[in-house]
């Protein structure tokens, strides 16, 4: 098969090629993007165009059948944003035909993102496309291409686990909670102590719809402040044994130099809570919870190292999935290019 010429091209820069100070100077607001889409076509620099501008990338997808489009478009970008070309030329990339198709498929599916596998970028690509199509800047080629990229992104979400498998400590905690409890909407969290990572974990669990949260701290005021933040309730540190019956997930991160929860205490809790499972997450260093607690039936204790180990494991799985995702994108690019040949032979 010879090289298929579709005239689909993309010029742009992203988080890998350009520093944030360069990216922000070339970024488009919605109004600027609308204006630019019109200008590009008025000036005869492209037949169809879509501008994708996010905090990690600025890209201009376009269809044009002239070979010097790189020069004219890079100059155009420089003039439009009034940034001198040498300032950003080194960061620019330019792809055409199957390379451009592959690039868009990878961007839409999150393979080109800073955090590989993130899903938000698909929404941004959709917004960029709808803005362009609503102003009439897209035509038959980019319409088909972008619709296809949404499909490819969805396929990747469904068929690879690139998007699951948490790789941060707080999301591993959420994942474990879901492995144990399934739905979290009847569950309550007890947060003992405070700290960035523990609050982040609570935040994630709240996003997953936990029923309630109880905050406890050596300083009651601090507990109250945390409780207020997450619309929970505050208790004094010596009162946690009274509320333990009603909590399902304990997150501990105090600055105490010794264990604050021992096996016999937690064993007492378990009788009180009729052996319902309990997930305990000990983020503190030095640790807050006696590791012997993990020996109790129906108690699952994870300390910071355990969480990191799970995260590492997930990361390895994700690398494996990456290969699968790459070959999936490859087959979709081929399918798209084959369709382009048919399209060209008809038109």
């Amino acid at each position: 098969m010879g090289k298929v010429e579709t005239n689909i091209q993309v010029i742009g820069l992203n988080h890998r090629t350009a520093q944030v100070q360069t990216r922000e100077r070339l970024a488009f607001t919605k109004a600027q993007a609308t204006a630019c889409l019109a200008r590009v076509r008025e000036m005869g620099l492209a037949d169809e165009a879509v501008i994708l501008s996010t905090c990690n990338r600025v890209e201009l997808y376009h269809v044009w059948d002239r070979s010097d489009s790189y020069e004219s478009l890079s100059q155009f970008l420089s003039q439009f944003h009034q940034v001198s070309l040498p300032d950003f030329e080194k960061s620019l990339y330019f792809y055409r035909d199957d390379e451009a198709v592959r690039h868009l498929f990878r961007v839409a599916s999150g393979l080109d993102s800073m955090v590989v596998g993130e899903k938000e970028v698909l929404g941004q690509v959709k917004k960029a496309y709808f803005l362009a199509s609503s102003t009439g800047a897209t035509g038959p080629l980019l319409n088909v291409l972008f619709q296809r990229s949404f499909y490819v992104a969805k396929r990747l979400q469904n068929e690879t686990t690139l998007h699951s498998g948490s790789i941060s400590v707080s999301s591993v905690a959420v994942q474990l909670a879901q492995m144990i409890f399934g739905e979290l909407n009847t569950k309550t969290i007890l947060l003992v102590g405070a700290g960035k990572m523990s609050e982040q974990t609570v935040q994630r669990l709240v996003e997953r719809g936990v029923k309630g949260m109880i905050a406890s701290n050596r300083s009651y005021e601090k507990a109250q402040a945390l409780a207020q933040k997450f619309e929970g309730q505050a208790v004094r540190l010596d009162e946690i044994h009274q509320v333990a019956r009603d909590v399902d997930i304990v997150i501990s991160s105090t600055a105490a130099p010794h264990f604050i929860l021992h096996q016999n205490e937690v064993s007492g809790w378990m009788k009180e809570r009729r052996q319902r499972p309990l997930l305990m997450i000990d983020i503190a260093v030095p640790r807050d919870i006696d590791p012997e607690v993990n020996r109790l039936d129906n108690v699952y204790l994870y300390n910071i190292d355990d969480l990191k180990a799970v995260a590492d494991q997930n990361f390895k799985e994700r690398l494996k999935e990456q290969e699968k995702a790459d070959s999936l994108v490859e087959s979709e690019v081929k399918r798209f290019m084959d369709r382009m040949i048919k399209y060209k032979s008809v038109h």
Partner: peptide, 17 residues
């Protein structure tokens, strides 16, 4: 869960509860 060993098969199981 007790041994803290996870793999992709693990995530395909229904929740413990």
């Amino acid at each position: 869960l007790k041994l803290k060993s996870t793999n992709s098969f693990f995530y395909r199981l229904p929740p413990l509860e």
